[in-house]
């Protein structure tokens, strides 16, 4: 059986090498790929969409439909984690509470909500690591900057590398950092499961909704130009704005999905105790 697999690998590799026989030269400006459609994108991007970054205009406008599904793929990943991992069960059987002043830890068997919300006690994880003051302070300081940067990346996609996916990832990372450096419950206090769920759906909904809005306004799906009917701009600028709206949607979904995947995976779907 092992040799069979080896044979398969060799076969695939040989087909791959065989394919290279007819490859155009590396970076050849006369290769078919750079003669057929690409020049159109390069020349017309700015006048069609008023977006100088060709990557963004191809991504979100010329082939915006693909990107919509890519965003949906991310949404689906979050959805799959929710469906497969989420356990709507009550809290862990055993809970631990720490008296903040004295540092005494109470191990409570069975369920209780008595000490929740108490000022003197804090709930801690069963495998508790004492709070690290350096980490907490630094992340508290850094997180706003990270989020600011994320917004910058989202907004700056028109001009420089960036856009919804990258910005969303950075935004999500900031919240995951919060959950790691404090604990899962702190992260969930800032943005709880319901919010994440709604955000992840809302983001893709914004993308698809903008497309559908174009449809309702009487043009093809995702034909942002028609948004000029409701926006006080010309069709080209409307395309640019449409792309921006879409990018925002992508960022929201990516952020929410990243965080919720982290939450579900790290807490085995209970959203009770994290890493």
């Amino acid at each position: 059986m092992r040799y069979l697999y080896l044979l398969l690998v060799v076969l695939s590799a040989s087909v791959l090498f065989y394919a290279t026989l007819d490859f155009p030269q590396w970076g050849d400006p006369n290769s078919p790929a750079s003669l057929h459609v690409s020049p159109v994108y390069l020349q017309r991007s700015l006048e069609d969409t008023s977006v100088p970054n060709v990557v963004t205009s191809v991504l979100a406008d010329y082939r915006g439909y693909d990107t919509m599904f890519e965003t949906t793929v991310i949404f689906t990943a979050g959805l799959a984690c929710f469906v497969l991992l989420r356990v709507f069960a009550p809290k862990m059987k055993d809970t631990y509470y720490r008296h903040i002043q004295s540092g005494v830890v109470l191990h409570i068997k069975g369920q209780t909500t008595l000490l929740d919300g108490s000022r003197d006690f804090e709930r801690i994880d069963s495998r508790w690591v004492p709070a690290d003051i350096i980490l907490k302070t630094i992340s508290r300081f850094l997180i706003p900057f990270i989020q600011l940067f994320a917004l910058y990346v989202v907004a700056h996609g028109h001009h420089s590398p960036g856009g919804g996916f990258q910005g969303g990832v950075i935004l999500g990372a900031s919240i995951i950092l919060l959950s790691i450096s404090f604990d899962l419950r702190t992260g969930l206090e800032k943005i709880h499961e319901r919010g994440l769920g709604l955000f992840s759906a809302t983001g893709v909904f914004i993308y698809t909704g903008i497309g559908a809005l174009c449809l309702i306004l009487g043009k093809e799906f995702l034909n942002y130009g028609v948004l000029s009917k409701i926006l006080p701009v010309d069709p080209v600028m409307a395309r640019s704005l449409g792309i921006f709206g879409v990018e925002v949607g992508v960022a929201i979904t990516v952020m929410a999905v990243m965080v919720s995947i982290y939450n579900y995976v790290s807490s085995e779907g209970r959203l009770d105790e994290g890493l």
Binding site: A201, F205, T208
Partner: peptide, 28 residues
């Protein structure tokens, strides 16, 4: 007539929209 012409894309994209709403409904 044009509406039915758009049905081709409505089929897919409204599928997406409706599935998003269905998921969001979990939280509402």
């Amino acid at each position: 007539g044009t509406m039915t012409y758009h049905f081709s894309v409505i089929l897919v994209t409204f599928g997406l929209l409706l599935s998003f709403i269905t998921y969001a409904m979990t939280w509402i």
